[in-house]
Design a protein around this nucleic acid. Structure first.
Lengths: 224, 224
DNA sequence: CCAATAGTCTAACGATTGTTAGATTATTAT
DNA sequence: ATAATAATCTAACAATCGTTAGACTATTGG
């Protein structure tokens, strides 16, 4: 049967479109950024340290694989993750990379002293502690990302403002800082600064995507 | 900080290695084939309808991303999936493709009348029926793949032998045929043949990978 | 030892990408 | 209207990838 070969080729080719879309480091970074909330091309280009032209080209590829959506709002084009399924895929490919690639595992353990993610029970007890006020959960991402989605009982304090807002933080309690996820270093820097200032700070390598609360359409208020 | 940019680039580059490995249709097909059990280069080349040289080249890429392992047994080199995590990733990228790409969704609905996968409850009741003997679950893949792993209470009857072994099948009961997964058409053909012969046959689009029972090291008998 | 088998390695080709520059479009502000 | 902004489109280059052919390396069977 030659016909079933043609059909199979067609099917695998379609799946490979997703693979191709995720075969570029910068495109993966754009996906992770969009997992934090919707953004303009300029914002994405800035956060990923690339030119707007290049960001636009990469976003074009992501859009042609239906992984992201965009629409125009005034002068800006707003991009967002198409689907919660995309967020889950990003976590899935990242987990596989961490599982299979020693280079990545080593680079991650160098970043933080305890690179492990929290178990569901750990998460629950962290939420409880934060609710009671026994720990302070600090979201050090830009305010817009905090507004799009944040961890339960988290308080927003962007890394740029941290140094000037230290007075707002308690000295007795443990401060748990998080940012965009394990590949984002803002929380690492925040913890370093806080420790220097005598605070009891620890780093949470997970972000909103890992907690399953990433936004999809925050402006309209739908999170499907 | 320019240092954190360099670290980030390094991290995303590693994840992109997985994306690159899954950016070729033939490599994805090789992964799916290896999810059925370990195979030689020749066997893989045959099943994927490519030359042995090309199969070798693709397997080299998969191995350099640590997604597959190989070792030599006599004249042959046996390849196998590195990890259960790889099986899960294959299902994950395929699901995302089916979720996001209309072309794939349409091609799949054309293949079978009811392309939906079974819910966990459906699976449970299918196993119960098969256990009681009320339905016959037919594995139409090659015998070696059946031996590597198969669905509970499934009976092996490779598609090539099916026509000559029809006498072994009961006429009153429903026959549920499955193969390598939704992209493999052997079970579709089997159901067509069985229906022509007056059997009550239905197609199960899922395979062992989807049921979470894919093998990793069948020859040594370890399935970690 | 020689031939056959199973597979890899190297080199090479064309095709596909990543990246940048320059021109172009739509929107807003003056 | 005109200028400025935000982004895309087109074209072009270099870099990478897919694919094939040819030489090469183990292993096995006679």
């Amino acid at each position: 049967m030659d016909k079933s070969r043609r059909i199979k080729d067609l099917l695998y080719e379609q799946v490979a479109r997703i693979g191709k879309a995720s075969s570029s480091p910068k495109r993966l970074e754009l996906i992770e950024l969009l997992c934090q909330g919707e953004k303009t091309v300029e914002g994405l280009a800035h956060d990923a340290s690339i030119s707007m032209k290049l960001a636009s080209a990469h976003l074009r590829v992501l859009r042609s694989a239906n992984l992201v959506e965009s629409d125009k709002q005034g002068k800006n084009v707003i991009y967002r993750i198409a689907n919660r399924a995309v967020v889950e895929f990003w976590i899935s490919i990242r987990s596989l990379a961490e599982d299979r690639l020693v280079e990545l595992k080593m680079a991650l353990t160098q970043l933080t002293s305890h690179p492990k993610e929290l178990s569901p029970q750990d998460r629950e007890s962290l939420v409880k502690l934060a609710k009671k006020g026994d720990v302070v959960v600090l979201d050090v991402r830009p305010t817009s990302e905090y507004e799009a989605a944040h961890l339960p009982y988290a308080q927003s304090m962007p890394i740029e403002e941290l140094k000037s807002r230290l007075a707002e933080l308690p000295h007795g309690k443990t401060i748990v800082a998080y940012c965009r996820g394990p590949y984002c270093l803002m929380a690492v820097d925040a913890v370093q600064l806080l420790k220097q200032q005598g605070f009891d700070a620890i780093h949470l390598p997970e972000g909103v995507a890992e907690w399953g609360m990433a936004p999809v359409r925050t402006i309209i208020g739908i999170t499907s």
